[in-house]
Computed example of a mutant assay.
Amino acid sequence: MKKLLQSYFDEVKWLYNDNYIPTLEEYLKVSAISGGYMMLSTTSLVGMGDDQVSKKDFDWIVNEPLIDQESALLARLLDDLVGDEYEEKPSSIHCYMRQYGLSEDDARGQIKQRVKNAWKDMNQGCLESTPASMPILMRVINLARAAQLIYSDGDCYTDPTNRKNG
């Protein structure tokens, strides 16, 4: 929760610093946390029960393993792809365009590639040996799947009626 609140504060500083556009790395470091997915992955373990979650599992997820970082990054990037024109803060698209001199279409292409890479990293994280059990890993993966669904037909998080039938 401390990290989440600090990331909100950092984003506010950008807005009140003449609409500062951070570097891509700066943006991703802060905004992956401000999306709340890392906090959700941790708090989602609370309701699983003592027979499925151990202190070792909590220690593992609190140390922000790559699979959790990539899940949070994926959610942020998907949100940026569908909602950057509605938000009053910088997005990864703006950061790419400014830092690398890309067109919006090229920046969006780069973000889509990073989403694909995040999925690859998460899948690899499930194949490697880790202190976390498969039910814990699946919590993180399922949060990423939820993000993919929420943002697959536009921004269904901000506007749940946006979801297409079928």
Rank of each mutant, 00 (worst) to 15 (best):
R145W: 09
S152H: 12
M138S: 05
L102Q: 04
M97D: 11
R139T: 10
D106W: 01
L149M: 15
A107K: 06
S133V: 09
N117S: 07
M122P: 10
D106V: 10
I136R: 05
S133R: 15
G101S: 08
T130E: 03
A107L: 01
Y151P: 08
L127F: 03
M122D: 01
A118K: 06
M97N: 11
Y151D: 11
M97R: 09
V140N: 01
V140G: 02
K112M: 14
S129A: 10
V140R: 01
A118D: 13
Q99F: 00
Y100D: 07
C126Q: 15
R139G: 03
G109P: 10
C126E: 12
A107P: 03
L127P: 00
I136E: 00
I141W: 13
D121G: 08
Q124R: 15
I141L: 08
W119L: 01
V140E: 03
N142C: 08
K112H: 04
Y151V: 07
D105V: 07
D106E: 15
G101D: 03
S129K: 14
S152E: 10
M134N: 09
G109A: 10
P135H: 01
K112A: 11
T130G: 03
A132R: 03
G101E: 07
S103M: 09
N123G: 05
L137C: 08
R139D: 01
Q99E: 14
P135F: 10
L102N: 03
E104C: 07
C126K: 08
D121A: 13
S152F: 12
L102K: 08
L102I: 04
T130C: 02
E104F: 01
L102G: 11
Q110G: 03
D121W: 13
M122W: 02
Q124W: 04
A107C: 04
V140Y: 05
Q99G: 00
Q148M: 15
K116H: 06
G109C: 12
V115H: 01
M138I: 03
A118W: 09
M97S: 09
N142L: 06
Q99T: 02
I111T: 12
L127R: 03
S103N: 12
N123A: 03
G125C: 05
M138L: 10
G109Q: 12
Q113W: 07
G125D: 02
Q124E: 12
V140P: 00
